[in-house]
Nucleic acid binder design. Structure first.
Lengths: 232, 232
DNA sequence: CGGTCGGTTGAAGCTAATCAATTAGAGTGG
DNA sequence: CCACTCTAATTGATTAGCTTCAACCGACCG
């Protein structure tokens, strides 16, 4: 196993507070694995055997049903996914698929549960992590239930704009169909939503978006920190 | 403080595993309080001062924004709410309002955080609780993004039917406007959705619903355990 | 008995999904 | 470098689902 990334993993909030021994134990059964793009890592309904950490690349969390499929979240380095299923020793509620060539750290679920038994600091970090994740989903649900498609897009753009330095441009890190699924709409509707935003100073050229009048956009978006602010 | 309900609280998964001392400490600063119906207990944006336990009555969790309001969940005895905000020492993401005359146990947020520092068994119970809550919201989000309004209602009815003994009838514990908000639709649309379900053996008389052909309903609902099953 | 409130019904409009066709772009191989 | 291919994205036309507004009904309550 390549160890040069271990410090990065160790630095995650989830692992930072735990003791050196606990961390060593945890990494005992863990391993890195590379995956090509568009690989299904897990399928909803599978039993939770591993906790995943995205070290490089990008992973899409997907929900299926009703002959449809929607994107719940997109995970970027360095973050974990399907923690809740692992902790409950339950079945995954979401599938995961790589969006790009990715490198993942896979930690056996059993190791996680054992570490929790032994290391209270780790357990507490887990509580913080889960509470944050919970709040994240609540925000998604609020966005979905309280906003129109155009509003969701506008707010997503404003958040991305801030993340990327608020210099008047946004570069999409994912393709538009994935963005559409994430925002809960069809690709066609996303395209039209971008069209609507043209009236608010948005120019789209492939994956490059220009926000020429952010304040106009904010007027439309009616951003709400209780939906849009990232958990700290 | 009335102590006759403490055993009930103690029996909750969240509190069952903790030590007697920890529990005593936790209850030290806690108190019961009665509220009339339709009282706003907390408003989203407030800082999290208390963890609430619904001991009697019913409480609605609400999200606001965009001059709208939607119901995220309805809490019944005996369960806790706004745990995540308390743990993160953050601001509430949801408001809470009593639906009926209710009695709540209020535990100071600080006590919860202290108990977590001292009692690892409590912290682990917290992890389980939060993981379960997380999975619950994911299910709501899936339902919202993958199903139509009629399908959401059909599945909600089937779950309620099971909960109430699967004897062919369901009694609504909440009024229809609240149910509509919970399912993410308008009251008018809920009314029409019930109308549609008449074709599947559903008869509605006030709060009494008869499911004369549950299998028909199941055919329409296309239930999915990964959305509809309760966390154990 | 009148009033209020929750629920229902009808009509109209709007948002978003669907279906179909076209265009744009990225990558491939000659 | 250019044609060729494949997929992503856009655009147009239509339909479906849901919301909105308004009127109405019926139960419960003072």
């Amino acid at each position: 196993m390549r160890t040069e990334d271990l410090p990065t993993v160790r630095a995650l909030d989830l692992f930072a507070a735990m003791s050196d021994e606990s961390f060593a134990d945890l990494m005992q059964g863990a391993f890195f694995q590379r995956f090509p793009p568009q690989v299904m890592l897990i399928e909803e309904g599978d039993t939770a055997d591993f906790l995943y950490v995205v070290v490089e690349g990008m992973v899409e969390m997907i929900a299926q049903g009703n002959e449809r499929e929607t994107t719940i979240a997109v995970m970027e380095p360095v973050s974990t996914f399907i923690l809740a299923a692992v902790l409950r020793d339950a079945v995954y509620l979401m599938s995961a698929r790589t969006l790009e060539r990715s490198r993942l750290l896979m930690i056996p679920a059993e190791s996680i549960r054992e570490a929790m038994e032994r290391d209270p600091a780790f357990t507490r970090a887990m509580v913080r992590e889960l509470a944050g994740a919970f709040r994240g989903v609540i925000k998604s649900l609020k966005s979905q239930k309280l906003r129109s498609a155009v509003e969701r897009l506008a707010n997503w753009l404003l958040v991305a704009h801030d993340d990327q330095g608020a210099n008047g441009t946004v570069t999409l890190g994912i393709d538009k169909r994935t963005l559409a699924a994430l925002l809960g709409m069809t690709p066609e509707n996303l395209s039209r939503a971008f069209g609507t935003l043209r009236g608010y100073g948005i120019e789209v050229a492939g994956r490059e978006i220009v926000l020429s009048r952010p304040d106009d956009l904010r007027g439309l978006a009616k951003s709400n920190p209780l939906i849009d602010d990232r958990e700290t």
